[in-house]
Structure formats: structure tokens, C-alpha cells
């Protein structure tokens, strides 16, 4: 019996994959394996085993230190072989997204990255992902025997732990250290923000003329109880951190309300907001593409509209 193998360097993401892996495995008659590497492998193995994974392959091989992509890909290829896995699910974090294709190439597998859904259709696992820069959603079917899917984090939920534990297997790996050495690592600047979970978001764009003017956006966000987010265009100025970017290369948000201020609405931005329940936009240009996506639109100058909005909200 073939297995599905799940892996992520992030434990929560691995548990999300285990949830889907279990469901697909049950439908396809496949077992569920997972891999966990490095010093925290034993902890992760416990969590994975408690979430329905049949076998967790662990390794603390020193070559895995720093999680060099070449070594992790080799390790996963060896685990896939040992586990008899023909389908590998990886979380599409930055690390996972560069890992998945390298692993796929080793396995002679087809690969889909940035997967936003996995659906069983006529016995095949069909993966959806944005195509044409986010204009469309392509449904892809891999025709190779081995398949690698890199799935966006937070696509699946985490199941409640189940009784019983999976088997922990010491993986028999033969690895060389990575050719690339980690020289240093430092956290990114800026306060961490979790846009994925935000219920209300004020998204600001290059309609703001100066960095100082962002105070207007912050005030509005505070009045709405919203998180402040931005376009890549604005973040590229260095005015707000990358973790506040919404869109293709940032967060794919699902808030109840998204208010776009001085945002043109290029497709690479709007893919990150199209799942919002309600969208409003403020822009001076009546032809700005953002209005095509808006439930409520205000053609106007943010420097006039924002203070008025804050005043009205505070008066509630």
C-alpha cells in the first residue's frame, strides 16, 4: 500500500497537512507518514502521531542542521522511498516552496506549488492554484506516478488530537552536509502581524504621498478595530514591513471587511483580498480596477475622506 508523506519545518503547518493527508488517504486507501527533522523532531513526532499520522520518520542527522534545501530534499526523497510514499504534501512557506520542486525533480515527480485546495475528483487529487498572476484559478492534475504538492499554510484546519499514537521510526538516512552554509540568521524587523486571522483590515497603497501620512491610515484602522496592511508597492518604499503585504507574494486574507485606501487594485494585490466578505475602496481615480471588486466605492481624496470617516466612526 502506498503512503502519503507530509512534511513542514513548521509544526502547525505539518499538522494541517496531516489533516488533509488523513482524509485523502482514507479515500484513496493510502497510509499516512510524516517526516520530522532536527533537534525538535521528537516533539513534532509526538504531535503528528497524535493527529492521525501512522508513521513518523524522524532524524537528527547533523547534516540537517540549518535545513539546507539540498539536504532536506535528499532526506525526504530517502524517507519517501523507505515509506513507499507516492504523494508528498509540503507547506508552501518560502522554505517549502523552494524545497518542493527540488524534491520533485529527485523523485521524477510532477509538482504544483502554492496550492489553495486539494480535491479528490474521479480518483485523482486535483490541485488548485492561482495562474496568470492571479487572474484565474487553474485546476491541475499531475499525471506522474509520484506527486509533490506544496500547499499554502492555513489552507486546512488542524484536527483535534485522536487517541492512540503513530509509530516513531528512526529514518535510516545517508546524507552529506549542505553545500551552502548558513553564516548568520536574524529576525526580520517590524512587529509581527497575523493578517491571515484578521477580521477587519485597512489596506493602504501608494495613494499615500508621504510615510508620515500613514498615521491617517493607522487612526482609521484603530477606529475600526482593524489591522493595517499594505500593497507591495508601499512596502517596497520601506514604509511598512513585508509581513503587512497582502496579495500574491504576501498574505491571502479572509476578513469580514477589507477597506482599500489609495490602492489601485492590481491583480497581484487583489488575489489576497478576493475572499473578503465585504470590500470597500477609496481612490481618486474612478477607473481604478479596485472598484470592480468593491461592494462600496468612494471616488475621493483619502486626505479628505479618512479624517471624515474617523470622525464619524468615533461618534458611534
Amino acid at each position: 500500500m502506498a503512503d502519503i508523506l507530509v512534511y513542514s519545518e513548521k509544526q502547525d503547518a505539518a499538522l494541517e497537512l496531516a489533516f488533509k493527508g488523513k482524509e485523502l488517504g482514507a479515500a484513496l486507501g493510502m497510509g499516512l507518514s510524516a517526516a520530522a527533522f532536527g533537534p525538535s523532531a521528537a516533539d513534532s513526532a509526538g504531535a503528528l502521531g497524535a493527529h492521525g499520522v501512522d508513521r513518523v520518520f524522524v532524524s537528527e542527522d547533523p547534516a540537517l542542521e540549518g535545513l539546507g534545501v539540498d539536504v532536506v530534499a535528499e532526506a525526504l526523497a530517502q524517507v519517501a522511498c523507505e515509506a513507499g510514499a507516492t504523494m508528498v504534501l509540503i507547506a508552501s512557506t518560502r522554505r517549502g516552496k523552494e524545497l518542493a520542486p527540488r524534491l520533485a525533480q529527485k523523485l521524477g515527480a510532477g509538482c504544483v506549488t502554492d496550492v489553495s485546495s486539494l480535491v479528490l475528483t474521479d480518483g485523482s487529487v486535483v490541485a488548485s492554484r492561482y495562474a496568470f498572476g492571479g487572474n484565474t484559478v487553474a485546476r491541475e492534475n499531475l499525471t506522474t506516478e509520484s506527486k509533490v504538492f506544496a500547499v499554502m499554510p492555513k489552507t486546512f484546519e488542524i484536527a483535534a488530537p485522536v487517541a492512540g499514537a503513530g509509530a516513531v521510526v528512526q529514518a535510516a538516512l545517508s546524507l552529506q552536509p549542505s553545500a551552502a552554509k548558513v553564516v548568520s540568521r536574524r529576525p526580520k524587523d517590524g512587529d509581527a502581524v497575523n493578517l491571515d486571522a484578521a477580521e477587519r483590515i485597512v489596506g493602504v497603497g501608494r495613494g499615500f504621498a508621504k510615510r508620515d501620512d500613514l498615521g491617517l491610515g493607522e487612526e482609521l484602522a484603530a477606529a475600526l478595530g482593524a489591522e493595517l496592511a499594505c500593497t507591495k508597492g508601499l512596502s517596497d518604499f520601506g514604509w511598512l514591513g513585508e509581513d503587512r503585504i497582502v496579495g500574491l507574494s504576501g498574505a491571502k486574507t479572509k476578513p469580514d471587511f477589507y477597506l482599500a485606501v489609495g490602492v489601485s487594485g492590481q491583480i497581484q494585490h487583489t488575489v489576497g483580498i478576493s475572499s473578503a466578505k465585504l470590500i470597500a475602496a477609496i481612490n481618486t481615480d474612478k477607473d481604478a480596477p479596485i472598484f470592480q471588486l468593491a461592494d462600496y466605492g468612494i471616488v475621493g481624496n483619502l486626505y479628505e475622506v479618512l479624517p471624515a470617516l474617523v470622525e464619524k466612526l468615533k461618534a458611534l
Binding site: G110, V112, R139, L142, G297
Partner: peptide, 18 residues
């Protein structure tokens, strides 16, 4: 080895109230 079954824009149902 990748078969594209469909490639369509997402349906958006917005109010478009100005």
C-alpha cells in the same frame, strides 16, 4: 505531466455601490 483541467477567473459577486 501537468494537465490543466480548467483555468477560470474566480466568481466575484460584489454590490458595486458608489
Amino acid at each position: 505531466s501537468c494537465e490543466t483541467l480548467s483555468n477560470l477567473a474566480e466568481e466575484q459577486d460584489r454590490k458595486h455601490i458608489m
